[in-house]
Amino acid sequence: MERADVQHQDDAALLAVRGLNKRFGNVVACHDINFELRRGEILGIVGESGSGKTTLLRCMAGQIDPDAGQVVFNSRRHGVKDIFALSEQDRRRISREEWGYVHQNPRDGLRMRVSGGANVAEPLMMNGQRHYGQMRELTLEWFEKVELDIARIDNKPRTFSGGMQQRLQIARNLIHSPSLVFMDEPTGGLDVSVQARLLDLMRLLVRDMGLAAIIVTHDIAVARLLADRLMVMKSGEVVEHGLTDQVLDDPQHGYTQLLVSSVLQI
């Protein structure tokens, strides 16, 4: 396994994945994945269930060790580094300070036993903020940004609807101004009516904050509206990669053509 430090990287790339491989027993989850992501870019990863999308996302977020390959991140604190060449402590610090991770199920990404406000403020505390008043103020701002009722700031997340929980999760993952956010099916479990609003919100936030995002989804429509670029995965391999509208309107690979032609029209 190659884990050497990478010093001379293109400064433009915020994240570079090189030769990433991951297998679970005989199952190849990710095979030789290579791509780069720039600041402000939104990359969509589409493919059917079991194609390796989420495994790839979790490898990039340092949650799973790949069998081989590098995930090179341009960190504010550490500079350009393969995250797996860093100590676990430094990797956790990057994750805490510079990343967000939005889970498909908000229950996986929220602490259900503390209030919504505390959930949103947690990343601030994790990063050393020790002034309650300042945190409270910023939390209220974020409640408004994601259009949550500020009167409910001290309610527990379980009293929130699915869409509200997901907005809570998004606020929690953006409040500390990360440079990169990983999203795993962020609109997956939501009503279509709630989805649209959330999509617009995420797009606006990403645009206003200039952050980069990697969004795993099996919903082609979500990918079209959010992503600048698309990677299409099948059986652990990237079969097509390009501008979102190119991939969806002029798919080159047989699998992508099948995927695009299978989308229901209304």
Partner: peptide, 9 residues
């Protein structure tokens, strides 16, 4: 037109 826009490859 789409090829000129880069929509088609």
């Amino acid at each position: 037109l789409r090829a000129i826009y880069g929509n088609y490859i």
